[in-house]
């Protein structure tokens, strides 16, 4: 056995650092005691209570809907922005567009949230919309910052796609719009899926921006969790955390599994081809 290098040890320790706190969360979600830190025997009662909590269930439904629509819109906008930046050569406003696409990635959330709220207040004064803040305003806010992430994911994929694929389609008689839908989109489809999933999780996870732009009508899951957690540790939140971690892990595992399988299939096909 070779002595493991310093960096390998750091990698293992780092992964432990990332995963141990989450494992502790999962472990205590099965604690029968209300005190999260004292083990009092195995129990599933917090899961039952979680599913009886109408406020949390409503918030989950609201959050899922917002995340779905935000991710979908962000994929449209972000893909458009990426396509324009990568494929359109030079045009007026390109620097402005690329700055506005990368800036939301690092903008502190309090600034984004505050500025969007003030925009909505102004719009309500000027044009009477949005009269009430709620799901629509959260949707706009989430779409805006999520499309920046989608644009980064899609443009890095688009850059790898051979430009002559699109040129070949046009050469064979497909006009630009048709080329985009028949060639470009199918080729970058995996990046679109990755971008959508990323936007979906970002939207589900956002607390600060949603708190600013939301109104009394819409309470998202992070808002409910935050108001509960602020008061201290609660085993019901542990149960919720466990379910979230489980879902994300399962989705990641499935994605990994299918990626690996299609890769293996491809390798077998290549080998067959070389032999035959």
């Amino acid at each position: 056995m070779r002595k493991p290098s310093f960096t390998t040890v750091m990698l293992i320790l780092g992964l432990l650092f990332l995963y141990l706190p989450m494992l502790v969360l999962v472990f205590y979600s099965f604690n029968s005691s209300r005190l999260v830190t004292v083990w009092a025997g195995f129990s599933g009662r917090w899961y039952i209570e979680l599913f009886r909590d109408q406020q949390i269930l409503n918030a989950v439904w609201t959050s899922l809907r917002i995340a779905f629509f935000s991710a979908s819109m962000a994929v449209c906008l972000g893909t458009l922005a990426a396509f324009v930046m990568v494929r359109f050569g030079r045009f007026r406003g390109k620097t402005a567009l690329s700055s506005m696409v990368t800036a939301p990635l690092v903008m502190p959330e309090v600034i984004t949230g505050l500025s969007l709220l003030l925009l909505f207040v102004h719009m309500a004064q000027l044009i009477g919309w949005p009269a009430d803040r709620g799901m629509a305003t959260i949707w706009i806010a989430h779409t805006t910052f999520c499309s920046a992430y989608v644009a980064v994911v899609v443009s890095s994929r688009l850059r790898e796609v051979d430009l002559s694929l699109e040129e070949a389609a046009m050469d064979l008689g497909a006009p630009p719009v048709k080329t985009f839908f028949q060639i470009t989109l199918p080729v970058i489809a995996p990046a679109l899926a990755a971008g959508w999933l990323l936007a979906f999780t970002l939207s589900l996870d956002d607390l600060v921006i949603a708190s600013f732009v939301s109104g009394p009508g819409a309470t998202t899951l992070p808002m409910v969790v935050f108001s509960s957690v602020r008061l201290g540790v609660s085993p019901k939140i542990n149960a919720l955390a466990t379910l979230i971690i489980l879902t994300v892990s399962l989705a990641t595992f499935l994605a990994w599994y299918f990626m690996r399988r299609s890769e293996a299939k491809r390798r077998i096909a290549m080998r067959m081809q070389q032999e035959g």
Binding site: L25, V36, L204, D205, P222, V225, V233, L240, A241, I244
Partner: peptide, 13 residues
């Protein structure tokens, strides 16, 4: 990809 809030919450316990 899980939840920012919950990962911070884990450290409270």
């Amino acid at each position: 990809w899980t939840s920012f809030l919950i990962r911070v919450y884990a450290w409270m316990g």
